[in-house]
Design a protein around this nucleic acid. Structure first.
Length: 580
RNA sequence: GCCCUUGUAGCUUAAUGGAUAAAGCAGGACUCUUCUAAGGUCUUGAUGUAGGUUCGAUUCCUACCGGGGGCACCA
C-alpha cells in the first residue's frame, strides 16, 4: 500500500521527486504519512507547513477519486493520509482473494546467489552454524518472493590445512572401526586432541601442513581418507538439514576449486595484483586501504581466499548473478573486504557482492566458542534441550492433547523458537549464548505467533460447523467465507481496522526486508501483526456475532490474518500449527 | 598500534534523519460460567560522556570512555 501511495504522489509531483511514505503508530498522524514537503520546503525556501498545506490540497484534488478519506498537513510539515472505506475495501478484497498477496517484482529477471551454512567437514555443527543457516535460508525465501531467481548455495568447508591436521591425527591415533561407528564424533575428537597436543609439540603443526600439501598434490592415501571423511560427514549434515527444514540448490565446496589454484595465483601475479613476498604470494591492497592478503603459502599450498576468488569467477560466469550474498559471521569481515577488493582489481563488477554479517555466538562469560577447544555448544544438544523444554510446557498448558499432537507441537514449537530467536534480531554485535532466552516460549517468540495462528484456525474450523448447520448449501463450507460488498464498512471498530491496515503492510515489509537483507524487519512485523490479531479476537465476537454480514466479514479478516501469518512465518522457515 | 563493529529501562532487544523512543523477560495489580490464559488489561523503568551538522539526531560527523572481533602462511 505504501508503494501505491508513492506512485500516486509521483504522478502528481514528478517521478524524480524523492518521496517516502511511512506508517505511523496509531491513527493520530494518519494511516500513512510522508515528510517530502519538509525536504522540498528546504530546497525552495518556503515555510514547511505552508508548503505542506499547499501540497495536501493538490493531492486531495489530483489523487484518484475516493482513494483517500482525508489528506492533512501537520506541523512542522508532514502530510498525513487516511484511506477511504472504498480503498480499504479494495485492498482487503485483494488480501482475501489473492493467494500471491505480498509477492514483489523488484527482483524480476535477476539472479541472486545466497551462500549460507558452510559447515566444516568432520566437525559437528554448533550454535554458530544455526545463525548462518537460518538467516541465509530466510533471506533466500524473502528475495524469492520479491521476484528474484535464488540460488541457495552451501559452500562446504571441505578443503584446507584443517584436513591435513585431521589426516595427521588419524594416522597417529585413529582407527577405522571407531570412526565408522560414530564418524563426526570420532573425527572431531581426533581434531581436538591434535590441537591440544600441538601446544606441547610444535612439530605437529608442521606435520599437519605437510599432510595437506600431500593431499593437494594428489597423494592417494590422503585423498581416500579425505573422501571418506567427507562422505560420512555429509550423511550427518543431511539429517541436520532435514531437522532444520533447510535446503540448498548447490552443494559445491572449496575442494571443487582446488585445481584452479595455480592458475588463479598466476593470473593475479600476471595482472600485477599479487606478488611474491617472504616465499609466499600476497595480493597488495594498499590502494583499497587494506592489509595485504595471502593467497599462496610458502610451501605452495592454497588458501581459503584463493578458493573464494576461483569460486567467484565460477559463479559470475555460470549464473550471471545480479547479487551474491555471503551469510558469514562478523569475524571474517576483513577477509571479505579483501576478496571484494581483489574482485574490483580484476574488473569483476557485474554483480553486487555483499557480506551479510552477524555477531558471533559466545559462551558464558563472553568467551569465544571453539571446536578446537571443544567448548562449542553443539546444535543437536540445543535442539534436544529445546524440544524437551517444549514438551514440559505442553504437559502443563495442554495435557489433553494426544501424544502424537504433543510431539508435533513440541518439535515445531521448539524449532520455531530457536529460529525466531535468531531471526528477530538484526544484531552485528556478538550474542552470549543463553539457554533461558532460547527456551523462552512466551511473549515475543515463535510459539506466541503459532498460538495466534492456531486460535484463528480454531475459530475458522468452528465457523465451518456453524455454516453447515445454518445453510444447506455445501459450498458455504469453505474455510474462507466469500467477501461481500460493503463488508469493510461493517468492520467499524478501531481494532478491526487496525488489524486490516497491519495486513496491508505485508507487501511493503517483504520488499523492505529484501532490500535491507533484514530478517528482523519481517519478524518484528509478524509479531506486531500477532499482537493486533490477539486484540482482535480478545475483544471482538466473531462466531457469536448475530449480524450475518458482519460475522462473515470478521471471518474473512480472521482467515486473511491467518494466511499472512502463515506466509510470513514460512518465509522465516517457521511452521504453523493447527492446534497448540 | 591499526582496521571493523557495538553501547537504548534491572536483563534481552525495536525504531527508512521525523511527531509521544517500541516491545519481551523480570517486578507490582487485575483477568478463565464467553470462539485455546503459550492469551488480554493496567503499572514501575532507558538513548555511555562531551561537542558538532540539521527546522528536527537513538540514527550522521569528531573526540573520549567501555564491550566484541580481526590484522601474512587457519577458515
Amino acid at each position: 500500500m505504501s508503494q501505491e501511495i508513492v506512485r500516486i504522489l509521483k504522478n502528481i509531483f514528478g517521478a524524480d521527486t524523492r518521496i517516502e511514505v511511512s506508517v505511523p503508530d496509531g491513527e493520530l498522524f494518519g494511516h500513512y504519512s510522508t515528510n517530502f514537503a519538509l525536504r522540498q520546503a528546504k530546497l525552495k525556501g518556503i515555510p514547511p507547513l505552508e508548503l505542506a498545506k499547499e501540497y495536501a490540497a493538490r493531492i486531495a484534488a489530483a489523487a484518484p477519486a475516493r482513494f483517500f478519506q482525508k489528506v492533512e498537513a501537520a506541523a512542522p510539515g508532514f502530510i498525513n493520509f487516511w484511506l477511504s472505506d472504498a480503498t480499504m475495501q479494495k485492498e482487503f478484497a485483494a488480501i482475501a482473494r489473492d493467494k500471491k498477496y505480498g509477492a514483489g517484482t523488484i527482483g524480476k529477471g535477476k539472479t541472486v546467489i545466497v551462500e549460507y551454512s558452510q559447515p566444516n567437514i568432520a566437525k559437528k555443527m554448533h550454535v554458530g552454524h544455526l545463525r548462518t543457516t537460518i538467516i541465509g535460508a530466510a533471506l533466500a525465501n524473502i528475495l524469492e518472493l520479491s521476484g528474484y531467481r535464488v540460488v541457495r548455495w552451501n559452500y562446504l568447508g571441505d578443503w584446507g590445512t584443517q584436513f591435513g591436521k585431521l589426516i595427521a591425527a588419524y594416522k597417529l591415533w585413529g582407527n577405522k572401526k571407531s570412526v565408522e561407528k560414530d564418524p563426526i564424533e570420532e573425527l572431531q575428537k581426533l581434531y581436538v586432541r591434535f590441537h591440544a597436543e600441538m601446544k606441547s609439540d610444535p612439530e605437529l603443526e608442521k606435520r599437519g601442513q605437510e599432510e595437506f600439501k600431500k593431499l593437494e598434490e594428489g597423494d592417494r592415501e590422503n585423498r581416500k581418507l579425505w573422501e571418506w571423511f567427507k562422505k560420512e560427514s555429509l550423511k550427518e549434515f543431511m539429517k541436520m538439514y532435514k531437522t532444520l527444514d533447510v535446503d540448498f540448490d548447490v552443494w559445491i565446496g572449496e575442494a571443487f576449486f582446488e585445481r584452479e589454484m595455480k592458475a588463479t595465483v598466476k593470473e593475479l601475479v600476471d595482472k600485477n595484483i599479487a606478488e611474491r613476498s617472504e616465499g609466499a604470494v600476497v595480493a597488495k591492497l594498499d590502494a583499497a586501504g587494506l592489509p595485504p592478503a595471502l593467497i599462496q603459502k610458502s610451501d605452495g599450498a592454497s588458501l581459503y581466499l584463493t578458493r573464494d576468488i576461483a569460486n567467484l569467477r565460477y559463479r559470475l560466469k555460470k549464473y550471471k548473478p545480479a547479487k551474491i550474498l555471503y551469510v558469514v559471521g562478523n569475524e571474517q569481515a576483513l577477509a571479505f573486504e579483501q576478496l571484494f577488493a581483489i574482485a574490483a582489481l580484476l574488473g569483476w563488477n557485474s554483480a553486487e557482492l555483499k557480506h551479510i554479517k552477524y555477531g558471533l555466538v559466545l559462551g558464558a562469560g563472553g568467551k569465544k566458542l571453539s571446536t578446537r577447544e571443544g567448548t562449542a555448544q553443539l546444535l543437536e544438544g540445543v535442539i534436544g534441550e529445546a524440544v524437551a523444554k517444549a514438551s514440559e510446557v505442553i504437559e502443563v498448558k495442554n495435557p489433553d492433547l494426544t501424544l502424537a499432537e504433543k510431539m508435533e507441537i513440541a518439535f515445531t514449537g521448539a524449532m520455531g523458537a530457536l529460529k525466531y530467536n535468531d531471526l528477530k534480531e538484526n544484531r552485528t554485535t556478538d550474542i552470549i549464548f543463553n539457554w533461558e532466552k532460547m527456551l523462552d516460549f512466551s511473549g515475543d517468540s515463535a510459539p506466541y505467533l503459532q498460538y495466534t495462528y492456531a486460535r484463528l484456525k480454531s475459530i475458522l474450523r468452528k465457523s465451518q460447523a456453524v455454516g453447515a448447520a445454518e445453510s444447506q448449501n455445501a459450498k458455504s463450507k469453505s474455510v474462507e467465507p466469500a467477501l461481500k460488498t460493503g463488508d469493510a464498512a461493517t468492520l467499524v471498530r478501531t481494532i478491526e481496522l487496525a488489524l486490516m491496515r497491519k495486513l496491508f503492510e505485508f507487501p511493503d515489509i517483504v520488499e523492505r526486508a529484501g532490500e535491507l537483507y533484514s530478517t528482523s524487519t519481517l519478524a518484528t512485523y509478524l509479531y506486531k501483526l500477532a499482537v493486533a490479531t490477539n486484540k482482535f479476537y480478545e475483544t471482538t465476537p466473531i462466531l457469536k456475532d448475530d449480524d450475518v454480514a458482519r460475522r462473515s466479514a470478521r471471518l474473512v479478516l480472521a482467515a486473511s490474518a491467518a494466511r499472512i501469518l502463515q506466509k510470513g512465518l514460512g518465509l522465516l522457515g517457521i511452521k504453523t500449527l493447527e492446534k497448540i
